[in-house]
Design a protein around this nucleic acid. Structure first.
Lengths: 222, 222
DNA sequence: AATTAAACGGGACATTTGTCTCACTCCCAG
DNA sequence: CTGGGAGTGAGACAAATGTCCCGTTTAATT
């Protein structure tokens, strides 16, 4: 379930469940719809929030801004993904920023209501467990290969994911996702182009799936 | 709750709960005790397991071994920490290796039993939610500063944690925890010694808490 | 159409990190 | 006591990455 390596995470099952709750006059009366323009903050790191958001439409990025001015993007969240749940569970200040990349609409559920839902709908509880488990899973895998493989490799994976998902992010965001500077990002792109692995022009991987897998295998052996 | 930045994670509440279950003849009859010698594998990456383990005693390390021969340690798990829960929730192969650093004893609970416990004990369910949330929280924070700050800074934090917890790991493990080579680890240690931040001899931070905080602040401003 | 801000691409140089290597110590099994 | 293996420490060099900078392109607004 949702174990596939995604740069942009989505969760249809979760979205459907919340959608249904929202439709239900009884259960849904504390659930609000909210909209955010592209670039707007849904959640600000360090602030206190009293609701969880489930993304109904649009794409957001979830990142920590360090004091030295650098950002690290953990994930791009799309429809069906929840944010602010850590804060609901542990009652702390917000871990990260969430900002809208495209225009976004969300379901907003107050914390106490959210916790009550978990208790009254075991199915919902289990969906959340799966979401959290999947996040840990993904984060571990990603962190590990970003630390232990050259950037070139991580970048290739990133581009492959981007291509397969038909989504496109700014270079700045992609660099922040990889935890490197934009300069390094560009440099690596150039290297890959010179090796004829990428289009001269853009970001399209100039390889078949088989070839890409071979590339990656080669990296792993080296 | 357990938000403090720990290198060695422990969880008293969780341990107590499982301990009680184990004592209870009715509920505990499917819970086994298992022991592992130092260095033994509790869980092998990629394998299939059918139980979750809750550490009763001892220290383990949780790491991914990449194909290029490098390891990345996510966390050191101590008493009360659970492992194998991701696999119970998502039914996949094991994400990571767990090996015993010291002799270890664990409670072993079969997957189906574990999932049943979550349903029948809301309190247990909530404890698990908190554990998962705390892991995400910690992982995000750590990943971010390891990517965005110089190694020197991450290393200082690591040593401070080690000192405050009175735990000591091999250099190899500490390097794997930081995602760097042992060589870099040593080099950075040497630099810190030359700057009179560390003991000439060993790994003790040669600063008061206030001084250390100042150091870290200086890093953050730079 | 003109203006501005942001994104992009890359040169030059400094710094950081990895790889390879060798030497030293310690401990333990033979 | 002794040889081997693991852990440790560091020199020398190569490779990767960051910083600073500037010119170009693109997109949005006036």
């Amino acid at each position: 379930m949702s174990h596939s390596q995604d740069m942009l995470r989505t969760n249809t099952a979760f979205l459907q469940f919340v959608e249904q709750l929202f439709e239900d006059k009884q259960a849904g009366n504390t659930i609000q719809l909210k909209s955010f323009a592209a670039g707007a903050h849904l959640i600000r790191q360090g602030s206190i929030i009293s609701q969880v958001y489930i993304i109904r439409e649009g794409i957001t990025k979830c990142y920590i801004a360090e004091d030295n001015g650098k950002d690290y993007i953990f994930e791009f969240l799309g429809p069906g993904e929840i944010t602010g749940e850590l804060e609901a569970i542990n009652k702390g200040a917000c871990l990260s920023n969430i900002t809208a990349i495209t225009p976004v609409t969300v379901f907003a559920i107050p914390h106490d209501r959210f916790m009550a839902l978990l208790r009254s709908y075991p199915e919902f509880n289990e969906l959340l467990l799966k979401v959290l488990a999947a996040r840990i899973y993904q984060t571990c895998i990603r962190t590990s290969y970003q630390q232990l493989y050259p950037v070139e490799y991580a970048l290739l994976r990133l581009l492959a994911l981007e291509a397969s998902q038909q989504t496109f992010f700014s270079k700045k965001d992609m660099a922040a996702y990889l935890g490197i500077s934009v300069r390094s990002f560009n440099r690596t792109l150039k290297d890959l182009r010179e090796k004829n692995i990428l289009d001269k022009k853009g970001l399209n991987i100039d390889l078949s799936k088989e070839q890409l897998e071979q590339m990656i295998k080669r990296f792993e052996e080296a």
